[in-house]
Design a protein around this nucleic acid. Structure first.
Lengths: 194, 194
DNA sequence: GTCTATAATAGGATAGAC
DNA sequence: GTCTATCCTATTATAGAC
């Protein structure tokens, strides 16, 4: 069996940056704070990220991309019916949000909004993450028998709606927007089965 | 006929703060930058907002609330069928986003995400704005004959989906997410007519 | 109400010893 | 790779003349 390697410094830095940027945004997160939270020194951060804060932002977004993709893939594989699976994903997001006392919403949307049009590297990483998530949904729908164009269109709305519902749920400190969004997405997808 | 009063200093400051926070977020926007953009001095900003940056943030969010509510109300009144009206609203948002070269997305979401759990006054103004927008949608649906619970649930998903689609459209620099979201929202609302 | 100057602090980033 | 010290600039906020 493989050993579970204890996280190296670089890993701890990326993890801390990702979490802090999720909660406070990109501009609201300081490099010194990241170093402190990661039990690393400022020198170590700049050793691993000579590109400075922007490079750290890119790594944080890429890390969050993989993390949410894992959650999404797990949700999609847990139920045979993709329409039901997506509602389950919304419920999981609602639970995680409530359990974090409404702190942990989408891990990249704050960073996305603050840096759009101002930090091309981060912008690209964000665009890639959203595309990645849409592809997971579209692939699942295609495998379930949906025609190509319906699968693609629905993948757009699934990700958009989950994204928006997570934002409004966080702001309202209520699970309702996510639960209702899950229900409506199931209904929308099912409406294409006729 | 009423004169069109030229905007006073306070108005110019709020307008500039709202626009800059929409594009750069709350943390990414400096008070000095707001003053400069509003053709005001730093002293004037603190004269009108003794509460400092947080108070300015609250005023900016409240201003954006009214602004988007106006756009939404106009869209909802332009078509007799609310399901069609919402698709029209999505198209308008897509056009505004493209025309601003992908800079002007939702005016409060960046500020919302950065300040949640950290600036109670702003948080409350944001929550109020979302509630306001949902109410406009719910009222329209109720007037169109939808039962109370369906109208309320749909208003959640309409705002969540528009919000998420605006975010993903901005990131992808594409009108597609908003156009597709509008189409799917129409379909979802129509599915409750049977 | 408006303006300039300035205080007090925190930000990103770098240098160089170890 | 890690650590500390430091530079430079920007930030929020205040003071006080006009």
């Amino acid at each position: 069996m493989a050993n579970t390697p204890q996280p190296g410094t670089r890993e701890r830095i990326v993890h801390a940056a990702s979490l802090l940027m999720q909660r406070q945004g990109y501009e609201g997160t300081g490099i010194k704070q990241v170093a402190q939270e990661a039990n690393a020194t400022l020198g170590s951060v700049y050793h691993f990220f000579p590109g400075g804060k922007q490079a750290l932002g890119v790594a944080a977004v890429e890390h969050a991309d993989q993390e949410f993709a894992g959650l999404l893939a797990k949700s999609l594989s847990e139920e045979a019916d993709p329409a039901q699976a997506i509602a389950g994903c919304a419920r999981t997001l609602a639970r995680l949000l409530r359990d974090s006392e409404w702190m942990d919403g989408c891990p990249i949307s704050a960073t996305a909004l603050e840096t759009t049009g101002r930090a091309p590297d981060i912008e690209q990483a964000v665009a890639q993450a959203f595309q990645h998530w849409r592809d997971l949904v579209a692939d699942t729908l295609r495998e379930a028998g949906f025609p190509e164009d319906e699968a693609r269109d629905l993948s757009h709305t699934v990700i958009s709606t989950l994204e928006g519902a997570e934002l409004t749920a966080q702001v309202a400190r209520s699970e309702t927007p996510l639960i209702v969004a899950g229900k409506h997405l199931t209904r929308l997808i099912d409406s294409y089965k006729h």
